[in-house]
C-alpha cells in the first residue's frame, strides 16, 4: 500500500471530520449546509479510495447534488438565513454532555476496535474488489446483486420513493389546496398543517 494512498486517505478523512465539526457549530443553516456538502465530497473521495467508485459517484450526485440542494432550497424558501430565524444552540451543558458521551464512545471504540477480528470464513481474498472492478467495471458488480439477490428490496425501495413523493406533496400543500385544480370548496382534503396543529 503506497504511502501516497495512505496520505490521501488520511487527508480526506481529516477533512471530513473537521468539516463535520465546523458544520455542527455553525449558527447559520446555509453555512452549515455548505460545510456538510464538504463532508459529502470528502466521503465520496474516501469511497473511491475504498474501491467503491460507483458509490462515490452517486454520493456526489445524490447527496451533494440533490439532497443538499433540497436542503438549501428549503432554507431559502423559509428564509431561515435571516437573523431572526437563527436559532441558537441549547447552551453549554448539552454541548459538554454530548461531547463527553461522544468522547467516551469513541474511546470505547478505539479500545475495542483493535480487538475486533474479522470473520475469516466470510472474508474474500484480498484485492477481490479491485480485480472485479477491473474486469467488469465499477457498475456491474454492484448492479448484479442489486437486481438479483436484492431485487425485492430494490422494488420495495422504489415503492418507498413513490410514497415519499406523494407524502411530500400532501404535506407541502397549503391548507385547503386541491389537487389538479379542482379548486371549489375549501377543506375537502385536510391540510397537513391542520393535522399537525390539531393532532388529528
Amino acid at each position: 500500500m503506497s504511502l501516497f494512498y495512505q496520505f490521501v486517505f488520511y487527508v480526506f478523512g481529516l477533512v471530513a471530520v473537521v468539516s463535520a465539526c465546523i458544520f455542527v457549530t455553525r449558527k447559520s443553516p446555509v453555512a452549515a449546509a455548505l460545510w456538510l456538502v464538504n463532508v459529502m465530497f470528502s466521503l465520496s473521495a474516501l469511497y473511491i479510495l475504498l474501491d467503491a467508485q460507483f458509490i462515490g459517484a452517486i454520493q456526489v450526485l445524490v447527496y451533494a447534488g440533490a439532497i443538499m440542494v433540497v436542503f438549501l432550497f428549503v432554507i431559502m424558501l423559509l428564509n431561515l438565513g435571516q437573523p431572526g430565524q437563527l436559532v441558537d444552540t441549547r447552551g453549554v451543558l448539552p454541548w459538554l454532555g454530548s461531547g463527553g458521551v461522544a468522547i467516551v464512545v469513541l474511546a470505547a471504540v478505539l479500545v475495542r476496535l483493535p480487538r475486533i477480528e474479522a470473520v475469516d470464513a466470510l472474508q474474500l481474498p484480498p484485492e477481490t474488489l479491485e480485480v472485479a472492478t477491473r474486469a467488469a467495471g465499477a457498475v456491474a458488480p454492484v448492479a448484479t446483486p442489486l437486481f438479483t439477490t436484492y431485487l425485492l428490496a430494490f422494488e420495495v425501495t422504489s415503492v418507498l420513493l413513490l410514497v415519499a413523493v406523494v407524502g411530500a406533496v400532501v404535506l407541502g400543500r397549503r391548507r385547503g389546496e386541491m389537487m389538479g385544480g379542482g379548486g371549489h370548496g375549501r377543506g375537502e382534503l385536510v391540510g397537513a398543517d391542520e393535522v399537525l396543529v390539531h393532532g388529528r
Binding site: S98, V101, V104, V105, A108, V109, V111, R112
Partner: peptide, 13 residues
Amino acid sequence: VVGAVIMLGAVAL
C-alpha cells in the same frame, strides 16, 4: 442516545 451508549458500553466492556 443514553440508552444506545449503555448498550454499546455493555458490548464494549
